[in-house]
Nucleic acid binder design. Structure first.
Lengths: 341, 341
DNA sequence: TCCCTGTAGTAATTCGCATTAGCAGCTTGA
DNA sequence: TCAAGCTGCTAATGCGAATTACTACAGGGA
């Protein structure tokens, strides 16, 4: 009923070396300094036995006393590997894995979280959050109820992507500065001579969407047209854009931009000759288009990497700054040019 | 320095509910049956407190007594997420994740394993293998020393891909039947009229390579030409193939087939008109070629999936069959045709 | 001789949880 | 009337390793 028969414990090692379990532990942890001293010959004898038997300390028992287990949790709101979501999660995970490897941590994917209402939930009757020392959270949208609870429980975690405060308390994150990147693109368009801009996309809901709209509004003015996704179809949207005298369109998702571009082509309009078009971030789902869109590049691997670094710092109590925004790199592309008029 | 302040224990719950820690444990585990009885009102009071506080048992402490922790380890010999190895690992991981989710297990990626001699090693001074209940091993080649030790320690694990015995003891695996798939392709070529076949590729080292050669030899005969990868260049290999009167070439890796095909084209030979060519498995690195190769398809996701299922069965002591071979599906392609003359 | 300081190690305790044994208080049967 | 049985709960123990507190002994100075 117990563990595999071959499983060794410190007591076994102690017996074989003719010392106490305490001594084995001291040798293993190299505590020559702290109050306890071990004679070199005793030490060698113990090490010898350990080498012969291939003993390795049980990390679980270890964690019961220390608080760190060198395990970082990774929570995603959808499965990671299926190719549908792979394009979204993968770049983040690349950075996360690299960073975890560097800091000698293992990664625990919370695949066991049950799905409710089409989403995984962190908190469920048998959540295993505490197996990990802390956790990195990935997802376009993260329910604030879950964030509140994590914050309230003082559970160490870091979100990938900016998050609003939860219950008035700051949420740790490593995000991308969509506000600034979007504003810069508007400024660039303005420098080219554009005067009327439109924003197309959700603009609300997830923080990432809201931030883009915020940046747009900041640079384009509070009254610049904003067409949320619920506007009927692309042709309809295009009509409304043109009607408002807009010469540069800022689309949150590339698919949206592609749809609009097609509608424009159908109208005999060229891009960027007759209408400039800018996308606000890399495509997360592959889109078939020959257009090389002007926009910006989200530093996903760096976000993942720094999220882990931040988490490790937090775990070691080495930082008080728990929110970081990374710059997005603007991409040249060929869909933004001077306006026609 | 101690645990996160917000961390609750059964003792806390007990204090809040005015009962003993034992009672809390009994309620949590629904042990109304076994000797101990809990009055419904006590039970409800405890459950109420648990609900209010959101208490969740520490799975590690739990595992010290039971033997399972619902954590499955995943060991890969290279990082998982970088795109270089992603194409190889990804399909397996898709199946692994799916299966883990179904059985309510979390996945622990052993990213902390230090690299020695250009490879990760399972066993190192501070390996955390035992955090997981068992482990799935991925890798083209797995050092037999490591396998031997896993077997010797009675550590529950399953390899993805067939493995030779380690120290005369069988290694648990879920593999693909390369022997049979390769032999079938040779038979198919023979049915089309081919009589002389050649095998191009390592054919040794990893079990997957050896199996392909075994299948080839079984169907093509022990004396059919075998050109290992160390033969100089593609043109040279092609020359030797033609010299031997070979009409159908079986290439272990697609890149190899592409190189040969180019050499053949340079010689003015058409495929499959003048020379038939078969690849033995899906490309693991993207190859640029317009050829739609005849060959077989490795059921990678199913392999990952069944590896997890097998591991779970093993952990529950529910199986004695620890080796499974899955069939490969032959692909039609257009590089295998009747021989020329 | 007695006290003090070091040295080299061990016994005991701890972590959070599950389990076993057992203890009160009450009812029942003969 | 008293052992026997039932009920509802708790004290005690153990898992494996880390840590604290302590002991046994040697050597040195007063």
């Amino acid at each position: 009923m117990s563990q595999a028969p071959g499983r060794l414990t410190q007591r076994d090692i102690a017996r074989l070396a003719g010392v106490s379990q305490t001594t084995v532990s001291l040798v293993l942890n190299n505590r020559g300094d702290a109050g306890a001293r071990i004679a070199p010959e005793t030490r060698d004898r113990v090490l010898q036995v350990i080498r012969e038997t291939g003993y390795a300390a049980d990390p679980l028992a270890r964690r019961m006393l220390k608080q760190l287990n060198q395990i970082l949790g990774v929570f995603t709101y959808e499965p990671v590997f299926p190719s549908t979501s792979a394009d979204f999660y993968h770049p983040f995970l690349r950075g996360i894995e690299e960073s975890a490897e560097r800091s000698g941590c293992d990664l625990l994917l919370f695949t066991s979280a049950p799905v409710r209402d089409g989403q995984r939930r962190i908190f469920h009757e048998n959540n295993r959050l505490r197996v990990a020392d802390g956790c990195v959270l990935l997802g376009r949208e993260i329910p604030s109820t879950e964030l509140s609870r994590l914050v309230a429980e003082d559970y160490p975690f870091v979100c990938v992507g900016r998050r609003d405060d939860a219950d008035g308390r700051p949420v740790p994150y490593v995000g991308a500065d969509y506000v600034n990147a979007t504003a810069q693109l508007v400024d660039r368009a303005r420098a080219l001579g554009h005067r009327r801009f439109a924003f197309v996309g959700p603009g609300t809901g997830a923080e990432s969407s809201a931030d883009r709209l915020t940046g747009f509004r900041r640079a384009a003015g509070a009254r610049a047209p904003f067409l949320s996704g619920d506007t009927p179809d692309a042709a309809e949207r295009l009509a409304r854009v043109l009607e408002a005298g807009v010469t540069a369109v800022f689309a949150e998702v590339e698919a949206e931009a592609v749809a609009l571009a097609q509608a424009a082509a159908a109208h005999g309009l060229s891009i960027p000759g007759d209408l400039s078009m800018v996308t606000l971030g890399d495509p997360t789902i592959p889109v078939h288009s020959s257009l090389d869109f002007t926009g910006f590049h989200i530093p996903r691997p760096q976000m993942g990497q720094q999220a882990v670094e931040l988490l490790v710092d937090v775990l070691h109590g080495q930082t008080s700054v728990t929110q970081r925004l990374l710059d997005c790199e603007l991409t040249q592309g060929e869909t933004l040019g001077p306006p026609a008029h």
